[in-house]
Amino acid sequence: MDILRAERKAATEALPPPAERARIRKAYGVSQDAMGKAAGVHRVTISSWERGEAEPEGDNRAIYVGLLREMAAELGTEINMEAE
Rank of each mutant, 00 (worst) to 15 (best):
L4I: 13
L4R: 14
A6E: 15
A6H: 06
A6C: 05
K9H: 06
K9V: 08
A10V: 01
T12K: 07
E13K: 05
E13S: 11
E13V: 02
A14E: 14
P16H: 03
P16G: 04
P17D: 06
P18W: 01
A19S: 15
A19R: 11
E20T: 07
I24L: 06
R25F: 03
K26C: 02
K26D: 12
A27F: 06
Y28K: 11
V30W: 06
S31M: 06
S31G: 10
A34I: 08
A34M: 09
M35C: 04
M35W: 08
A38M: 14
A38I: 09
A39E: 03
V41C: 09
V41S: 02
V41I: 15
H42P: 07
R43T: 09
V44H: 11
T45Y: 05
I46D: 01
S48M: 11
S48R: 15
R51T: 14
G52H: 05
E53N: 13
E53T: 10
A54M: 12
A54N: 15
E55D: 14
P56N: 09
E57Y: 06
G58W: 05
A62I: 02
I63D: 00
V65L: 11
L67P: 05
L67Q: 07
L67T: 08
L67W: 07
L68C: 08
L68R: 03
E70I: 10
M71P: 02
A72H: 10
G76A: 08
G76I: 08
T77M: 15
T77W: 15
E78F: 13
I79E: 13
